[in-house]
Every structure is written in C-alpha cells, then in structure tokens.
Design a protein around this nucleic acid. Structure first.
Lengths: 204, 204
DNA sequence: TTTGAATGTTAGTCACCGTTAACCGATTCG
DNA sequence: CGAATCGGTTAACGGTGACTAACATTCAAA
C-alpha cells in the first residue's frame, strides 16, 4: 500500500510554528495577556497576518489545545494497546507522558491553564479527549491494581499527572535523562503506595 | 503578656472576601480574562468600588500571591521546627500542604499560574518566599535522605507539590478525608522511591 | 500572459477595560 | 451639632487590542 495519509488535520508547518510560539507566550502571561501582535512578532510576521492562518484568537487556542489533547490520547492508546502486559503498559504510559512533559513544557502548562478560555463547541471536545486519556490510564491501572476502586484510580491518575507535569517548575535542576528517570521512579512508587493503602480504607 | 498583634498585614475581612472571590475568577479564566467589574460583582459591589480597597488590579494580584506564599511558608516553618524528628517534620509538611490544597484549590491554581503577571517589585518577593518554602522541604528531606543530593531533592519537592496540587483537577472524585489520606500516602511513597533510586544513579 | 490563490502589509474601526473624577449617604468622633 | 472618614455610586476618559478592509507581492497553473 502507498503512504497512508493521516486522516485528521495535516497542520501546515507554518501553523505549527505559530502554535508553538503562541504556546510559549501563553505559558508566560496567559491567553488574554498576550496580543495578536506579539504572537505574530514571535514568528517574524506582524499582527493581522495571523488571520491568514487562523480565523481568530480563540480558534487558535482551541486548535492548540485540541492538538495537545489529541497527541496525548493517541500516544496513550497506542502505547497501552501495544504493550504485552499491564506492567509494560504502565511503563509505556509513563514514558510517553514524561517525554511529552520534558519536551514541551509550554504545551503542558497551557494545556491545563487555558481550558477556561476555549469557546464552547471545542471545549467539550477537548474535555472528551482528556477524559479518554485519563480512562486509558485508569484501565491499565485497574488491571494492575484490581483491588482499588475506579474513583481512587482516577484521583491517583490526576495526582501522577501533577507529579509528572511539574517539569515546568523544576526546569534545569537536573539533566534531562536524570529527570526522566526520577519522575518515572517517583510516579511508580506513588502508585505502589496507592495499592498498599487499598486495604486500609473501606469504601462501598 | 497581652494578646500579641500580628506584625504583618491584618487584612480587613472585606479585603479577604474580595481576594477570595478574585482568586476563584482568576483560576477560571486568568488574570487578564477577568475584569474589575466582574470581581466587584462577585462581592456585591460594582466596578470602581474596588479602588477603595486596592490601589489597582495588579496590586490586588500581588497582594493575593504574597498572602498565599506567606501563609504557606509560615505554616511550613512552624510545622517543620515544631516537629520532634525528620519523620514527623515531613508528616507535618505534607499535612499542611494537603490541607491548604484541599481547602483552597483556587488559591493553589492562581499561585503558580499568575506569577508572570505580577509587576516587578512584588514579583521578587513572592519568588523569595516560594524559594524559602521549597528550601524548608529540602532541609527536612536532606535530613531524611542524606544520600540524595540537593538538586534531586529540589526536583523531587516540586514533583511532590505537583502531586499534592492536583486537587483542582480531581475535585469531587473522593470525599475530603479519603483524598487527604490518598495524597499523603502517594507523596510519601514517591519520596521513598526517590531514596531507593539514589544508589542507582551516579552524580558528582 | 493572465489569472488567482497564498501570504504579507498598513490603516482604521469598534468594543472593552482599567482608572479617575465627582458626588452621596452613613457612622464616628471632637 | 459639625466634620471627616469610609465605602459606595455613576459618568467619563484614554489606551489597548481583536478584527476588518484595502492593497501588494509571489508563484503556479491554464
């Protein structure tokens, strides 16, 4: 068969460039704290030229968050279904999230900061993707720790995300590989701690 | 001795009320995404009446972040120095941070979201308080895990903060007490995992 | 070669927002 | 009883910023 074209969005390199620059700016001062003019300047063009690529500032943000959510979820699904057992699936999910968090701290930051500024049609879809990604984790974890009820697993998943996504705050403390290993180890240990606690807490 | 007056800032209840309302709004759409009018409306007054309490929007934000940083740091110092040994100190630090995160999710959110919007005189001071708080944790941890070098401890501290501050994302998944216990256990396990990894990684 | 899409530019419009001004009722205090 | 301070109001001003319009350039295809 010939090269399979990706079915969803083939963002032109220009669009991707703009989205990356905008993400870094948004990460610093927030969506409303950054002007269209600044975003344009960050990629060498200026002001309203952005409207040749996006139909509005909010649409730009929406596409940015949709892209992030989609990339995370796709990577998650692929890694989780490829793995041989639950143990390897968790390993792969951790590696994926850690790599993303280390490579794109600005995207991580914007991802959970700016959802409140996305207009309604797209907001729901982003939430859906985020929820699917979380459920991917919960599925893997529930195989690994069958004694723990789903709500606890969900809370634990969010906690692990918080741990892994701390990279923007500890930038430069450690070299990248050491950081990745540290996060992987801490996250795994945190989840093991969760399992141990299961028999100590009663729930319906 | 008579009742000791607190030396720093005795914020009138009105100010506190405004700061709380503003924090919730900022947590939703960011500093620049919320108008003075909206903040006023949230406390029943409208618009420029806020200038009877704060000299400007940025000053309001600055005071908000200063207040949060100061409360965290003060609670940290007190809990860490009161404790008998390192083990108890860590326990107390965890309890303090968890209680704060569970009781004031909006403040937690704003605390690391909006530093980039604070004007320069205050920004430095907030950073200083945050750094002191982190160092408080690092001191306790370095007593508990003397084999781990400070940079790793700092990164681990930020990771634990991320874990504990995940509460805004997992709101309502579990009852408060269960959530507190879960976070405490996961954080402790994550740190234990950090200690185990110390002998596996060489550093200068 | 002309057409027309793609991608810029600058100038202008319009709404919104932070801030100030001017004014007002209540409460406290000399 | 003033008088002042406190906390609130509405009206106006000035700046900024998202977006539109009108116009230019390049380049591929017909």
């Amino acid at each position: 068969m010939t090269a399979m074209r990706t079915p969803t969005r083939v963002p032109s390199p220009r669009r991707r460039e703009i989205l990356d620059a905008a993400a870094k700016l948004f990460a610093g001062r927030g969506f409303h704290g950054v002007s269209i003019e600044e975003i344009g300047a960050a990629v060498g063009i200026s002001g309203p030229a952005l409207y040749r690529h996006f139909s509005g500032k909010e649409h730009l943000l929406a596409e940015m968050l949709l892209d992030i959510s989609e990339r995370l979820r796709a990577s998650g699904v692929e890694r989780a279904t490829t793995a041989a057992d639950g143990e390897q699936a968790l390993h792969a999910l951790l590696d994926g999230q850690i790599a993303f968090a280390l490579d794109h701290p600005a995207l991580i930051t914007v991802h959970d900061r700016e959802l409140g500024n996305v207009p309604e049609p797209a907001r729901r879809q982003i939430r859906r993707l985020q929820r699917l990604y979380v459920e991917e984790w919960v599925t893997v974890l529930s195989e690994l720790y069958p004694a723990v009820a789903p709500p606890r697993l969900r809370a634990a998943t969010h906690a692990v995300f918080g741990l892994l996504n701390s990279t923007p705050h500890s930038a430069g403390e450690l070299p990248r590989d050491a950081m990745a290993a540290l996060l992987h180890r801490m996250a795994r240990a945190a989840l093991a701690g969760l399992a141990e606690s299961a028999d100590l807490v009663n729930e319906d």
